[in-house]
């Protein structure tokens, strides 16, 4: 099927056209980073207003880039949750309007389900696989048995990995978004320079904790004020990043060894981080696991990834009506309920 997909759950407004859940025809992402930068984070009121301003041109651009009109679209996919109601509703309302006006099937997709399958736009991964989703709001390990069949193996008990990057960047007085800045500075530093904790590293679980690491950086900075430039800053960034990577790698390894599964997918915004990619690559080489990480553009929030599970559901006859509402709270492992229809 040729699907038009829409995503507006957080900072990005995005629309994409995808053929058969595998071939990306267009993927337009309007980032709100510039609008948010002065605030050091997302201001939800700005977020929903900006989504509203750009949603129509973004959809038009997605169709134009794919050289298609709405006549050629066979179904509509939209991120239904979780996220901020005001932001989600902009995408959902647009999706419902198009589906209703054109008589097209519509399906709402869980945002994280999109991340799990983003890599399918570049390569097919056999089931089952282990997925590590790392972003500002998520640090979760899932066992993926198929579309709609997910089990949570572990998750963060406090801060998400991306949140730790952003908060540490703020502690160090670095600009937003902090993750990319820390990655760049860390590449010039010595990752063994500052001893930082690796919380829950050897607790035997697949759970994560990054709040203690953030606090350790804070305590270090209070005792050793770091100049905003130069070697000391680079070393601290490198040491912090290495601690995050060590924990992510060790937990992914536990999940793989525990389940005996030999395929790992890493997704979400933090999967853009160069040290995360290198660490996962090294791990998978050592233990003989097939590693799949989407290109950076598909790691960040985007609409194309939403079309992948949507293709599956629509083919199964699973669809939503125009009464579909935003699900601000939506645990991923409850998605399977729709499979019993």
């Amino acid at each position: 099927m040729r699907l038009l997909a829409i995503e507006s759950s957080c900072d990005e407004t995005s629309a994409a056209v995808v053929q058969d859940g595998t071939t990306l025809l267009s993927n337009i992402i309007a980032s709100q980073e510039a609008a948010h930068a002065p605030f050091g984070g997302v201001v939800p009121e700005i977020a929903s207003r900006k989504h509203l301003e750009v949603i129509t041109p973004v959809i038009e651009q997605a169709l134009a880039k794919a050289s298609l009109s709405l006549d050629a679209v066979e179904g509509i996919a939209v991120t239904q949750g979780p996220g901020l109601a005001g932001s989600l509703l902009v995408g959902i309302s647009a999706a419902k309007a198009i589906a209703y006006a054109r008589g097209l099937p519509l399906v709402g997709i869980h945002h994280i389900e999109g991340h799990l399958f983003a890599v399918f736009l570049e390569k097919r991964v056999e089931f089952p696989f282990i997925a590590l989703v790392v972003s500002g709001g998520h640090t979760h390990l899932y066992l993926v048995d198929g579309f709609g069949r997910y089990r949570v193996l572990g998750q963060t008990r406090d801060d998400a990995a991306g949140e730790a990057f952003d908060k540490v960047a703020k502690i160090l007085g670095l600009p937003y978004p902090g993750g990319a800045v820390i990655d760049r500075l860390a590449s010039k530093g010595d990752h063994t320079a500052v001893a930082l904790p690796r919380p829950l590293l050897r607790d035997g679980s697949c759970n994560f904790s990054f709040s203690g690491l953030k606090t350790a950086v804070l305590q270090f900075v209070r005792k050793n004020p770091v100049p905003l430039e130069g070697g000391a800053l680079h070393d601290l960034c490198a040491s912090f990043q290495a601690a995050v990577v060590d924990v992510l790698v060790e937990k992914a390894k536990s999940a793989l060894l525990e389940t005996g599964i030999t395929r790992l997918v890493v997704a979400g915004g933090v999967a853009c981080n160069s040290a995360v990619r290198a660490g996962m690559s090294k791990l998978c080489g050592e233990i003989g696991v097939e590693l799949s990480i989407p290109s950076p553009i598909l790691c960040t929030d985007n609409a194309a990834m939403i079309a992948v599970p949507a293709e599956f559901y629509l083919k199964e006859g699973i669809r939503d009506g125009t009464e579909m509402d935003a699900k601000t709270v939506w645990p991923l492992d409850t998605v399977s309920e729709r499979m019993k229809v």
Partner: peptide, 11 residues
């Protein structure tokens, strides 16, 4: 897990 809602704003 009662995790930080910094990104989600509300859990």
């Amino acid at each position: 897990c009662v995790a930080s809602p910094s990104y989600t704003l509300l859990n």
